[in-house]
Computed example of a mutant assay.
Amino acid sequence: MNRVIDNHGRPISYLRLAVTDRCNLRCFYCMPEEGIKYVPKPHLLTWEEMERTIRILVNMGVDKVRLTGGEPFVRRGIMDFLEELNKIDGLRQINITTNGVLTAPLIPEFQRLGIKSVNLSLDTLDRQRFFDITRRDEFQNVWQTFEALQEYNIPTKLNSVVMSGKNTDDIIPMAELTRTHNVSVRFIEEMPFNGDGAHEYQEFWNYRKILEELKKTYPGIYKLPDPPASTSYNYQIPGHKGTIGIIAAFSRTFCGTCNRLRITPQGQFKTCLYDDGVFNIKDLLRQGLDDASVTERIYEALQHRAKDGFEAEAQRTVGLVSESMSTIGG
């Protein structure tokens, strides 16, 4: 299959699709405590529009889709949508990012549908800290999801945002999970996508500082080869079953191999996490454009793609980054 190539020579093979902006947690680094103003349902992409968009992109060489949110499992109909995606020829991987609150009972269905991997958001193993970060007492449900993923042998990555003054004491306990579990624990630099729920940084934990903290306890930790287009620097602790990843999401060191596109719940087509959308694919579909015309718009956008997140942020038309990560899909 031929893949479309952007203007910097990067092949595009991966779509991150946010199916909803709604979430049943209120993580302070993602949105203000009072939440955000949700998009009215008629302004969201329908399941049918999302399926059509994915089919168009698969014909352009995309073979991996990750469903995100918000929290994808708060939107009704998502399991039927997964059934339909599973029928698309050429779609090699369907992956899911979830906070795990509602997900545990669905894990057997994930296995039947052939879901390739699940990213589970989990910033702490301490129930009180979980409440302090998410403003909801849901740790036990999330942990049950983790246990179910392990039971059904679904490849799992635990995503932990490292936040000064909040959960840096959890870095080593999270890393310890890799001792006995075949899981990738990924530590992520905090980003500014919190819907104007501004807070002060006591100290910014970049990827270098996170690695230094790990080396204090695990001096033998060693670098693994990073897969093509990887967003994480990957490591192994000797004797541990699982692996460690560190994602420089704010430092933006991985842009040179970026193979990803993003579509927000309301249809904003983003060629970079840090841009403010290059066009609205929902509007194109509802205007009656055929697949060939939509394909041409996507191709055109990719020929004007920013070389990295810093350039994309500088080109924004609506000012500094401040939207909630819940509205753009993690």
Score class of each variant (00 low, 15 high):
residue 221 I to W: 00
residue 223 K to Q: 15
residue 228 P to Y: 10
residue 229 A to Y: 00
residue 229 A to T: 15
residue 229 A to W: 08
residue 229 A to H: 07
residue 231 T to H: 03
residue 231 T to C: 05
residue 232 S to P: 05
residue 232 S to I: 07
residue 232 S to V: 02
residue 235 Y to H: 08
residue 235 Y to D: 02
residue 236 Q to N: 09
residue 236 Q to P: 04
residue 237 I to G: 08
residue 237 I to W: 03
residue 238 P to H: 00
residue 240 H to C: 13
residue 241 K to C: 13
residue 242 G to P: 04
residue 243 T to A: 10
residue 243 T to L: 11
residue 243 T to I: 15
residue 244 I to E: 04
residue 244 I to D: 03
residue 248 A to H: 00
residue 248 A to R: 08
residue 248 A to S: 15
residue 248 A to E: 03
residue 248 A to F: 01
residue 248 A to Q: 08
residue 249 A to S: 15
residue 251 S to W: 04
residue 252 R to Q: 14
residue 252 R to C: 13
residue 253 T to C: 10
residue 254 F to Q: 07
residue 256 G to L: 04
residue 257 T to K: 05
residue 257 T to L: 05
residue 258 C to S: 10
residue 260 R to V: 02
residue 261 L to P: 13
residue 261 L to T: 12
residue 262 R to P: 12
residue 263 I to T: 10
residue 264 T to P: 15
residue 264 T to F: 10
residue 264 T to K: 12
residue 265 P to Q: 09
residue 265 P to K: 13
residue 268 Q to A: 07
residue 268 Q to Y: 14
residue 268 Q to C: 09
residue 269 F to D: 11
residue 269 F to Y: 14
residue 270 K to F: 10
residue 270 K to W: 05
residue 271 T to N: 11
residue 272 C to Q: 05
residue 272 C to E: 05
residue 275 D to W: 09
residue 275 D to G: 15
residue 276 D to M: 03
residue 276 D to E: 06
residue 276 D to R: 01
residue 277 G to Q: 00
residue 277 G to K: 04
residue 280 N to E: 05
residue 280 N to A: 13
residue 281 I to K: 02
residue 281 I to S: 13
residue 283 D to L: 14
residue 285 L to E: 14
residue 285 L to K: 10
residue 285 L to H: 06
residue 285 L to W: 11
residue 286 R to F: 10
residue 286 R to Q: 15
residue 287 Q to P: 07
residue 288 G to Y: 01
residue 289 L to M: 07
residue 289 L to R: 02
residue 290 D to T: 00
residue 291 D to W: 07
residue 292 A to C: 02
residue 293 S to I: 00
residue 293 S to P: 02
residue 294 V to G: 02
residue 295 T to F: 05
residue 295 T to A: 06
residue 296 E to I: 09
residue 297 R to F: 01
residue 297 R to Y: 06
residue 298 I to P: 06
residue 298 I to F: 00
residue 299 Y to F: 07
residue 299 Y to Q: 12
residue 300 E to W: 00
residue 300 E to V: 04
residue 301 A to K: 01
residue 301 A to I: 09
residue 302 L to W: 08
residue 303 Q to D: 02
